[in-house]
């Protein structure tokens, strides 16, 4: 991306991994209501960050700030090296080229078919002719198991199918980072698992860095502790190795502040009263 190239190079951690997203003392308030109050964290390439917290704790706001849809009142936000907290809309468009977002309820375009939704970025922004975009559209729809739905309208889909199409749309242009806003809320456990599996597949097979915002603990733990591997041509899910599981970090927000930060094991073992209440 030309914009990303012009931006300062992504920071390196001591271990040499690339930091994809970095928040430093980020704060935001709507009128008198404080949504984020000095939130800091970093996310390395290929890793997963899971944001937990009660409704209104500022989880979705973090995703909107990463995308530059909202501007923080204070602090610094670097996404793939670019300082998105003070970039203009035009410059943000270039950063967004490397990001994909799965909105709550999918936010599919009602007037377009499933195929057009998935290929939106390729057809409308990359200006590819439809016949050139079609193989990629079919590929990503196949990836989420909805290849047969390419010519349907979004209104004909079930809730789970809509989320999976939204994931397909977000991944179609091969982003480096995918942001999921409550991808399984309102779905039954079976359907939620199919959505979780897509998230795991994208992370482990396509090396996409993931940020997951949810209050569904079951899904959060599932994504953090499962691993997708390709075996004999098919994808299988198995419990993640300790090293792999450590790449998924949980952040629990409370009143706009980071209340807990650590891996799935640390979260389960936490003795903090708020964390315990949330987990029970």
């Amino acid at each position: 991306m030309p914009g990303a190239a012009a931006a300062p190079p992504p920071r390196q951690t001591p271990a040499g991994a690339t930091v994809v997203v970095a928040f430093e003392e980020v704060s935001l308030a709507f009128d008198e209501k404080v949504v984020l109050d000095g939130v800091s964290f970093t996310l390395e390439e290929g890793h997963t960050k899971v944001f937990l917290g009660a409704s209104g704790a500022g989880k979705s706001t973090i995703l909107k700030i990463i995308l530059g849809l909202l501007k923080p009142d204070g602090g610094e936000v670097r996404v793939l090296g670019a300082p998105v907290h003070h970039l203009a809309e035009g410059e943000l468009m270039r950063v967004r080229g490397d990001l994909g977002m799965v909105f709550q309820e999918g936010a599919l375009f009602d007037s377009l078919t499933v195929g057009e939704n998935v290929g939106y970025k390729l057809i409308e922004e990359a200006r590819l002719p439809i016949e050139e975009a079609r193989p990629r559209i079919e590929e990503v729809l196949g990836f989420v198991g909805l290849g047969a739905f390419i010519d349907r309208m979004p209104s004909e889909l079930s809730g789970g199918q809509r989320r999976r199409v939204a994931i397909a749309r977000a991944m179609a242009a091969k982003p480096r980072v995918l942001l999921y806003d409550e991808p399984t809320t309102g779905l039954d456990p079976m359907t939620a698992t199919t959505v979780d599996d897509e998230i795991i597949k994208l992370r482990d097979l396509e090396n996409v860095t993931s940020i997951l915002v949810t209050h569904q603990l079951r899904d959060a733990f599932y994504v953090a502790t499962q691993e997708a591997v390709r075996r004999n041509g098919s994808v299988v899910f198995e419990p993640a190795s300790t090293a792999k599981a450590d790449e998924a970090e949980f952040i629990m927000l409370k009143d706009g502040r980071v209340h807990f930060e650590g891996n799935a094991h640390a979260l389960r073992e936490s003795t903090d009263t708020y964390v315990r209440t949330f987990l029970s």
């Binding site: 909107k64 995308l67 849809l69 809309e89 468009m93 967004r96 080229g97 990001l99 994909g100 977002m101 909105f103 709550q104 309820e105 936010a107 599919l108 375009f109 009602d110 939106y120 970025k121 409308e124 922004e125 749309r169």
Partner: peptide, 18 residues
């Protein structure tokens, strides 16, 4: 209200132009 305008922006489209 269904976040489609935000989705447009996230996909790199300026809602004013689109």
């Amino acid at each position: 209200v269904t976040d489609q305008v935000n989705a447009l922006r996230a996909l790199g489209t300026d809602p004013i132009r689109k």
